[in-house]
Amino acid sequence: MKKILVLTLALILALSAVTALADGIKVGIINLDPSESGYRQANVKNLTDTFTADNGYDATFVTAPTADKQLEAANGFITEGVQYILVSAAEATGWDEVLEAAQEAGVKVFLFDRMIDCDPSLYTAAVVSDMRQEGETAVAWLESLGLEEYNILHIQGQLGSAAQIGRSDPLTEKCEAEANWTIVREGTGGDSWDPNEARKIAEAAINAGEKFNIVYAENDGMADGVVQALDAAGITHGVDGDVIIMGFDCNKWALEKLLAGEWNYDGQCSPFQAAVIDEMIKTLEAGGEIEGLNEKNQIISDEKGFDAKTITQEDIDNYGL
């Protein structure tokens, strides 16, 4: 009995010695469920590919779809004694207590992809997308075409979501300001950004005899739904077609449609924040200061919009989700 006890003790000591030896930077990463979307899948992969043992990290990953699970995970990381916590929050509110606890424990917090409503001093930096900028980039591209008439079929995402507001507002503002910009139809794919709903909206618009020359869909799936309706009605689209197709998110399959000339534009929403955070952590570890943050401690991801006329296979490989 005593022998076993001694043996176990020795084993525990040895194990803890080993863990102490493998002193990568201890990081706890809290993300949403990868099954959520192509975006999330790419995001999770990007993080797991970057925060590896080879890259000098001892990272623990938690993917949870709800706020309470995420908070639980964050508390766990703090008691575990990690050095850094990376969070993409399911909900923007309710994080103050945990973030304060982290600060007291000396854990540095990075936000990625999604912002949290709290005092900017509670996190070290936030690497996020500016959805409004995505909308502005898309509208600027549309304007650069110099069409005489802009008759737009506008398919919105989940109403009230940051992505929907950011991508809708620049377009609606432009249409209010310019006489030759008109939104002929406006619909929403609903909370799940449903392509099927987008198809039905487009069918109804076509059947009602509405003439539109631009489809502005706020994600790739819904753009695809509209394209199905156009195909069924024999309306041509894409580079040589009558209707301009615009989507967002840059899924690989969507970029391939751009390359094939079936669509015209796809706006990026970058899920690749890992490299930026990796660099910031390395800077901090080396005793440096993080630079380039705005007043809200944010770094806005640099995002592109792809044009069917200039896109290359290389772009698809690099930026496709």
Binding site: S192, W193, P195, N196, R199, G221
Partner: peptide, 8 residues
């Protein structure tokens, strides 16, 4: 749609 989106 010619594609599977298990979310939608």
């Amino acid at each position: 749609l010619g594609q599977l989106n298990h979310k939608t």
